[in-house]
């Protein structure tokens, strides 16, 4: 209920924050929606918190000249939901069901990405979209591809001294359809299985590109490459989608807990992958 004692410092600028990040015992806090629950249970016990919550330069959603969307790391889910990002079908699906309104009013995009909860929804969305994660440190800027960034439960490719500053989504395109479908763990609201799907048909009736990513299933959110491969060249018939979806957890050690043993979770990964792909195709018209 009550965290251990710690010191607190609010960063007045990004540079000040970067000067503090990475020193031993120091943790960054943004919205606190992941960190504070852990600290209250004394599962996380930082010596010092650096509050980046006020850094205006990390807030807001901008359209880049090339059509890409740049989302400041401190953008909350609620802000995202009323930004141009909501036009991405899969984000429109995912956002209203992440936590509850109170969590969405505080929880940030950067925090969700950095925390990398194995059941977190946003990382799956970013994976499917081939997003970029922009990080800064005293050493300079670093751009990570989402694919490869989420390395395990609560672990990412981010270096100790780096802060996430921005997430970049590829520009919207008319030949893409996307959707997010998830099965919630009733008590926590987190996903037992969450599937982000984007399918692209460049001309023709066949799928030419696909991004399928799952959360909740394994150690970390992942791209289901075998599903994507099976979809390429595919016309998107119910049978072919169903077949592609059977590869949803190929090569993944599937989690099991009291809410979903690994057998059930595996089956749900398949079912929800099929549903997400079908919904994405449905939006493509």
């Amino acid at each position: 209920m009550i965290p251990n004692l710690f010191d607190y410092q609010r960063a007045a600028s990004l540079d000040e924050a970067l000067a503090l990040v990475g020193s031993p015992g120091t943790k960054v806090i943004a919205g606190g929606m992941s960190l504070l629950p852990l600290m209250k249970l004394r599962l996380a016990n930082p010596e010092r918190l650096v509050d980046i919550g006020r850094l205006a330069e990390l807030k807001g959603v901008r359209e880049l000249p090339d059509g890409r969307l740049a989302i400041g790391a401190l953008t909350t889910y609620s802000e995202l939901a009323v930004s141009p990002a909501r036009h991405y079908g899969l984000l429109g699906d995912a956002l209203p069901d992440i936590g509850d309104v109170q969590v969405r009013n505080r929880g940030t995009v950067g925090g969700a990405v950095a925390h990398c909860d194995p059941a977190s929804d946003l990382p799956a969305v970013l994976l499917a979209l081939d997003a970029e994660i922009v990080a800064r440190s005293k050493r300079g800027e670093n751009v990570y591809a989402a694919d490869g960034f989420f390395t395990g439960a609560f672990s990412t490719a981010l270096a100790e001294d780096e802060l996430i500053t921005e997430i970049r989504l590829p520009g919207p395109r008319d030949d893409a359809g996307s959707a997010y479908a998830s099965l919630a763990q009733r008590a926590s609201g987190y996903s037992i299985v969450g599937v982000a799907a984007i399918v692209i048909k460049e001309g023709g009736s066949a799928i030419t590109k696909a991004g399928i990513a799952l959360t909740g299933v394994g150690d970390a959110p992942y791209r289901a490459k075998a599903v994507e491969a099976a979809l390429i060249g595919n016309e998107g018939t119910p049978e072919s989608i169903a077949e592609a979806a059977t590869h949803a957890s190929d090569g993944v050690t599937v989690n099991g807990d009291i809410h979903a043993d690994s057998e059930y979770r595996t089956a749900m990964a398949v079912a929800y992958t099929r549903r997400a792909i079908a919904a994405a195709l449905g939006r493509l018209g």
Partner: peptide, 21 residues
């Protein structure tokens, strides 16, 4: 949610926000 208050009209859980924040 028993601890819900608003900040600038937005609902938040005051048990999951530091007073310093």
């Amino acid at each position: 949610g028993a601890c819900t208050v608003t900040i600038d009209g937005m609902a938040i859980k005051s048990c999951t926000m530091l007073a310093v924040q």
